[in-house]
């Protein structure tokens, strides 16, 4: 299958990229790693007139610390995220979830920023960044702004990014010392999650002091599970964790597709939350 024709530019700086996006208007699209966009174009489900290839802009790859915040460049590939010592220490949940994304060849090309900006609710990393309470930094003609992850994902494949804004970095407050686990339920290897659960746990004296639960594919955007999170605070054993995990689907409206009904997805959210939190808390 051959994608529809388009124009292609490969800017050398963020400013050039933003200008190209502004000139291209609604018909321009950022090409990051292309592992979601190019398949969609080949299936003729996306028809951008202009692709702005940001893959070679210097400075958009790699990680650094700013105080207690880990900053990861938007064009950092999944493969590089997995091997990044700072990511592993300060955002272990991100590394754990990234290891489950697609397959090695896709991880060589696909990028963290591309996955977040694509905002597929079945993708693993949006729920992870939501659970990590990250901020997404965008640059546009009107300057630079940081968007909290909870405001970034607005609908199915929709984000708070304007068409002329480029996602440049992801800022993640360090969760060094927290327990973490990403539990993914998929039909076959390499498939999208039917449901995924990202769990972060801070323990105190053997009990869960604070828990965060991010849900993949439980609605048109990634979600948190606030009722379960509240119920998990203070949980001291596996039975208490499983009881609290029973609240994980509260307030969600999961979709129906060939893989699962909404009821089955709700069931998965409860079971997987129990597993993910137990593993994150070291109680499994």
């Amino acid at each position: 299958m051959i994608p529809p024709a388009f124009d292609y530019v490969r800017p050398r700086t963020v400013e050039e990229a933003v200008r190209a996006l502004a000139d291209g208007g609604e018909d321009a699209k950022v090409l990051a790693g292309g592992q979601s966009l190019l398949p969609l174009m080949r299936l003729r489900m996306a028809f951008p007139q202009l692709l702005v290839d940001t893959g070679r802009i210097p400075g958009l790859r790699g990680s650094r610390m700013e105080g207690d915040t880990l900053v990861v460049g938007a064009m950092t590939t999944h493969h590089d995220v997995l091997r990044d010592a700072l990511v592993r220490r300060h955002a272990g949940l991100l590394a754990a979830a990234t290891a489950t994304v697609a397959d090695p060849a896709v991880r060589h090309r696909g990028t963290l920023g591309g996955s977040l900006a694509h905002a597929d609710p079945a993708a693993d990393l949006p729920a992870v960044v939501l659970a990590l309470e990250g901020e997404l930094v965008a640059v546009g003609p009107r300057g630079r702004r940081a968007i909290p992850a909870r405001d970034f994902f607005t609908d199915y494949l929709e984000t708070a990014l304007a068409p002329d804004e480029l996602l440049v970095e992801v800022r993640l407050p360090s969760t060094d010392g927290w327990g973490f686990h990403y539990e993914k339920f998929q039909r076959v290897a390499q498939a999208y999650a039917i449901v995924g659960v990202a769990a972060l746990v801070r323990r105190d004296n053997g009990s869960i002091a604070e828990a965060r639960v991010g849900l993949t594919n439980m609605g048109s955007t990634p979600l948190r599970a606030p009722t379960a999170e509240e119920a998990l605070a203070g949980a001291g054993d596996a039975a208490a964790v499983k009881r609290a995990a029973g609240e994980a689907a509260e307030g969600t409206r999961p979709s129906r597709d060939t893989s699962a009904s909404p009821e089955y997805r709700a069931h998965l959210a409860r079971v997987l939350t129990g597993r993910a939190v137990l593993a994150a808390a070291g109680m499994g």
Binding site: Y8, G34, Q35, L38, P39, D53, H79, V106, H108
Partner: peptide
């Protein structure tokens, strides 16, 4: 690095 060449544009390999 291994890549799926159906998911890379020739211009990206420039």
């Amino acid at each position: 690095e291994s890549v799926k060449s159906c998911s890379v544009l020739a211009v990206q390999a420039d």
